[in-house]
Amino acid sequence: MDKETVRTICYLARLRIDQKKSEKIENDLETIIELISGLQSIDTSNIEPLYSPLEMTALKHEDEEKSDNKKEKFLENAPASNDDYFLVPRVVE
């Protein structure tokens, strides 16, 4: 785990870190990864993956409209909006 990897991980998660703490975070992440590596040494090739710890399957809903739209409230809660849209800093492709 080096500084560059930590920087990438933080960027992907949109987290800003205090540069002074970078070394501590490097060490912490290192420890976590070591812990997980222990699990990875087990051969699971013949075991069906467990997708959920609950022994249940998803309920499927009927394809019938049921609106709980609260447009005004949704827009009101956004940092910036007008009558119709959420407004965000301009993103241009």
Binding site: D84, Y85, F86, L87, V88, P89, R90, V91, V92, E93
Partner: peptide, 15 residues
Amino acid sequence: KSIHDEYDGFSAIDL
């Protein structure tokens, strides 16, 4: 949907 060219300095979002 993002609308980029209608509001000055902003992109407008329609969900």
